[in-house]
Amino acid sequence: MKTILVVDDEQNIRFLYKEELEDDGYQVTVASNGEETFKILDKQIPDLIILDIKMPGMDGIEVMRKIKDEKGDIPIILCSAYGQYKQDFRVWASDAYVVKSADLRELKLTIKEIFNRPKVNGPGQNDPSNY
């Protein structure tokens, strides 16, 4: 079973994503901020991370940079309420960018698409020297 980590500071959104994605057959863990994210990552590396950009403290982009630098190339989907970060080149270091919506079809399609991408580096590898 594929594992997904959802990081969002809004409790209801975490809840919504968890319910929806579990219904689709993924194993979902949640974190509400960067600190929690790294605590989880220290124990287990998921197959995919969904990261909200706008969070208090470390924002999603920073969390992503730290993950990519320290934990290796885990696939990451960045989310934000609007598309304003699309032009930010730092976001381009992610594997996908999805604008949040009550309609989760786009997010789900993106998840599938990422899992089906030909693997250059297997997801979940946590050795940065693989680059």
């Binding site: 809004e10 209801n12 959104i13 919504l16 319910e19 929806e20 309420a81 609007y82 949040k100 919506s101 009550a102 309609d103 989760l104």
Partner: peptide, 14 residues
Amino acid sequence: IKNPLVSIGGFARR
């Protein structure tokens, strides 16, 4: 406004 809307709409769909 957007985040609550996502929750409202998302749960309405569920």
